[in-house]
Design a protein around this nucleic acid. Structure first.
Length: 314
DNA sequence: GGTAGACCTGGACGC
DNA sequence: GCGTCCAGGTCTACC
């Protein structure tokens, strides 16, 4: 008999909108069921892995509580662990006042209510997902994450830092197809496993954004793009994460022309007015383009989009 | 401080 | 079916 949990949500929370808000919802071990509007994934808890299915009633009414069904009985400490991981992943800590602050700065998203960006149950998974999205086309990112779960993770869960720290780089390369990222991923895992990454400090609002960003740049495999992306995953939206997709967006959607440095300058100036929230303004512009091409993200079937996602393929 | 080239994988393309 | 080219962000060596 599995365990059932109920999680309270902020008054405006909509599972289908707030899960299907960032590409990681399409990466293993996440599985969004577009028909049932549920999120299924394995969580690696202290008592072992468990698969949970998260739903919000039949029609995802704003603010309705979330129902979580685990496939095995969870001990009380594991229930607390599962709640923490799910709350992190779904950004349940971002209440209506956080959302309103963003919408005051950028009113374009007030009607849809878009503000939260899906992330992972742990910072380690977010960092690995970011590294596996660098210098690679989206289908390879999909493959790397699937194989990491199949080969290194327990029972289909995402690998913990401890497990990846014990994995040989050659195994990551040969069986998970991560290429030259092999050594960098193991080094990152060792830093997390040894406790050399101070997650509390990184997530503490008292830590200046510049300090957090500079620290991230010291990590193996993390350059300006990856650091910018991890910043938003930490709930710090003041930095942009600009890549070739940003340039495409600037040229095809915003109509900018000229050489790359010129376009990048104009992009930065475009998002400057959104201040502390500029990443979200950038991201939801991009996301709106994807949804314009493929329909609402909550209707996307993972199998159908995993080879076409990113604008160049849409 | 700025930049060229290497790093891998997988898809596209030509034969 | 095979070989070649290319895209993608980070890192290192070099100027």
């Amino acid at each position: 008999m599995g365990t059932r949990l109920t999680l309270r949500t902020p008054g405006d929370y909509v599972l289908s909108r707030d899960v299907c808000s960032y590409g990681y919802f399409l990466l293993a071990p996440n599985h969004w069921d577009a028909k049932a509007r549920t999120l299924r994934r394995a969580l690696d808890l202290s008592g072992g892995p468990t698969t949970v299915i998260i739903s919000q009633g039949n029609d995802c009414r704003p603010g309705d509580p979330l129902r979580v069904v685990a496939d095995r009985a969870l001990a009380p400490p594991e229930r607390a662990e599962a709640r923490r991981q799910i709350a992190r992943m779904l950004r349940l800590d971002e209440d209506e006042s956080h959302v309103a602050a963003f919408h005051r700065v950028d009113r374009r998203w007030k009607r849809s209510g878009r503000a939260r960006l899906f992330r992972s149950p742990t910072l380690f998974e977010d960092v690995v997902k970011t590294v596996t999205s660098c210098n690679v086309a989206w289908p390879s990112t999909v493959n790397m994450n699937r194989r990491l779960c199949e080969v290194i993770g327990r029972a289909g869960a995402f690998p913990t830092a401890e497990r990846m720290a014990r994995t040989r780089p050659g195994t990551l390369r040969a069986r998970c197809r991560v290429g030259y990222r092999d050594v960098r991923l193991v080094e990152l895992a060792r830093l997390f496993a040894r406790g050399d990454i101070n997650e509390h400090w990184l997530e503490d609002p008292a830590t200046p954004d510049d300090d957090a960003f500079d620290f991230l740049l010291t990590l193996p495999g993390i350059g300006p793009y990856a650091a910018g992306n991890i910043m938003q995953l930490l709930g710090r939206y003041s930095r942009l994460a600009l890549d070739t997709e940003s340039l495409r967006h600037a040229r095809t959607v915003l109509g900018y022309d000229g050489a790359d440095p010129t376009v990048l300058r104009r992009l930065k100036a475009h998002y400057e007015p959104f201040g502390e929230h500029r990443f979200r303004s950038y991201w939801f512009e991009l996301w709106r383009f994807y949804e314009h091409k493929r329909g609402p993200a909550h209707t996307w079937e993972r199998e159908a989009v995993e080879n076409t996602f990113t604008a160049s393929k849409l």
